[in-house]
Amino acid sequence: MHIPPYHKQPGWQRFFAGAFFGGLIAYMIFLFMYGTMQADFQEEHLALKAETAELKRQNTALLEDNQNLDEKSKEEIGIDSIDIAILNSEEMKFDRLLGHQLTELVREEVDQIIGAPIGSVAENADLLVSTIENKTYEIDDFSYKLEVRRLTIYKKVHIAVHAKFKK
């Protein structure tokens, strides 16, 4: 078998040269398009990866905040301090020392509620009132009975009392 010698004819030589250079140019265009497309995909992949990492960090932070809020909501708010006011101290002509002593005696009676949850103190407000009202407070040979006029229960308990001499 014999292959015809077309490579020696100038028409065929131009055809083969054109096919070779056309294939080379097509391959270059293919490499350029593939490279730019691959670079775009890689850039998009890195952007999505960064966004995913940021969303994971944000999700973790939000879950931790949610757990902290759940724990805080489960904890009840406690009572921090007690404020006692004698409404008729001017009528009774209490001086500062006598008013302070009477206030301290009342504070000693109800001091155990400091640190207690507000809900339990609010449920037992009647017990707190009766504790203050049922005791006779003695200062300098005088006995005093107190009547609770106002009771506000929150982080700071405000008790407003009306004092009377006990006979």
Rank of each mutant, 00 (worst) to 15 (best):
D95H: 08
D95Q: 07
D95F: 11
D95T: 06
R96E: 15
L97P: 01
L97C: 03
L97Q: 12
G99M: 13
G99V: 03
H100W: 14
H100F: 15
Q101L: 15
Q101K: 14
L102Q: 02
L102F: 08
L102H: 04
T103Q: 06
T103A: 07
E104K: 12
E104Y: 05
E104F: 07
R107Y: 00
R107K: 09
R107F: 01
E108C: 11
E108F: 10
E109F: 09
E109M: 14
V110H: 02
V110P: 01
V110E: 05
D111T: 07
D111I: 06
Q112R: 06
Q112S: 10
I113D: 07
I113N: 05
I113V: 15
I113K: 02
I114S: 08
G115T: 02
G115I: 00
A116C: 01
A116S: 09
P117R: 13
I118L: 11
G119A: 15
G119R: 12
S120V: 13
S120L: 12
S120G: 00
V121S: 00
A122Y: 00
A122C: 01
A122N: 07
E123C: 00
E123L: 03
E123Q: 12
N124F: 09
N124S: 11
A125N: 05
D126T: 12
D126M: 09
D126R: 08
D126V: 04
L127G: 13
L128W: 07
L128M: 06
V129K: 07
T131C: 11
I132P: 05
E133L: 06
E133F: 04
E133C: 07
E133M: 06
N134P: 01
N134A: 01
K135D: 02
K135R: 10
T136D: 01
Y137P: 08
Y137D: 04
E138N: 08
E138I: 15
E138G: 04
I139S: 08
I139N: 04
I139Q: 03
I139V: 14
F142Q: 15
F142E: 12
F142S: 14
S143V: 02
S143K: 12
Y144E: 02
